[in-house]
């Protein structure tokens, strides 16, 4: 047993890497998400509200380039609703038969258009800091959903002695604390269609629920399949053990 423990230590020692490295900054508080845990699934109402927050608040600066409107089916929208959402966007298509690019209303197969034409334009409009794409944000940061939620709600006045430039804000959870992103959420920044009060806390957790899905859209299918696969393998392994015992029983 001792040897097993040591072997396991060798294998998994690397896992501590993440925690050790984040230690300098304030760790984001762990939250209980509907999608955490073995049986956790996405909360569709929260995702729909999160989509609204993204569209009305984040989308001014942040692209969501890996997500197509057709993907919104996973949020519980029907075909008509998706077509309506897509049609609210203008996408550039072409070239047409005259060789010109042209604009048309979005279709379900289109992806969310980016707020800026290219990274240089994004940098020029944002004092040199390119707002990152949000499609994979939850998977692309240590701390994941907890971190992004903490970041969105972690704006405070700078401690004494910390001088901020005009374009900087002080955030408890951002590495180094000085971020070029101004506090994006304020009370009632959006008006939720379902009447949910739009507190900063609520909007932050809604948009994180939405972004958790954009980062890992196959999670629900993955977990459902995983439970079946593991149950099958446990039984199969049990049978194989019995067969093994049976075969070896003849050996004396």
């Amino acid at each position: 047993m001792k040897k097993l423990i040591i072997a396991a230590a060798v294998v998994f020692a690397g896992l501590q890497a993440g925690t050790a490295r984040a230690a300098e900054d304030t760790d984001p508080p762990a939250r209980d998400w509907s999608f955490s845990g073995v049986f956790g699934q996405y909360d569709r109402a929260a995702m729909q509200r999160g989509l609204q927050v993204y569209r009305e608040v984040c989308a001014g600066c942040h692209s969501l380039r890996l997500i197509a409107f057709r993907n919104l089916e996973a949020l519980g929208y029907g075909e008509d609703e998706i077509e309506a959402i897509a049609a609210e966007y203008t996408v550039v298509d072409g070239p047409d038969d005259e060789g010109e690019m042209f604009e048309r209303p979005g279709l379900p197969a289109d992806r969310f258009p980016s707020p800026f034409a290219n990274p240089k334009a994004a940098a020029a409009a944002n004092n040199g800091a390119v707002p990152p794409d949000l499609s994979l944000m939850i998977k692309a940061r240590d701390g994941g959903a907890d971190y992004v939620h903490a970041l969105l709600t972690g704006y405070v006045d700078p401690p004494d002695g910390v001088e901020l430039l005009d374009v900087q804000s002080y955030n408890l959870y951002f590495p180094g604390h000085l971020t070029a992103m101004a506090p994006p959420l304020s009370e009632d920044a959006v008006a939720y269609g379902d009447g949910t009060p739009a507190t900063v806390e609520r909007m932050a957790s809604d948009v994180v629920s939405f972004l958790a899905w954009t980062a890992e859209p196959a999670m629900e299918e993955r977990k459902r399949m995983g439970i079946k696969v593991i149950l099958f393998l446990l039984v199969f392994t049990g049978v194989l053990y019995a067969v093994k015992r049976k075969v070896w029983a003849g050996l004396h």
Binding site: F232, L233, V235, F236, V239, L240, A242, V243, K246, V247, A249, G250
Partner: peptide, 30 residues
């Protein structure tokens, strides 16, 4: 020739065959 090795009673043999078949069937399904 282990297949013919531990030729126990009929009951044991049935149980053994059942095990082998179950394992093989699960292997195919998997």
């Amino acid at each position: 020739n282990p297949g013919a090795g531990p030729g126990h009673s009929g009951d044991g043999e049935t149980r053994r065959d059942f095990l082998y078949l179950t394992a093989a069937a699960m292997g195919v399904v998997g």
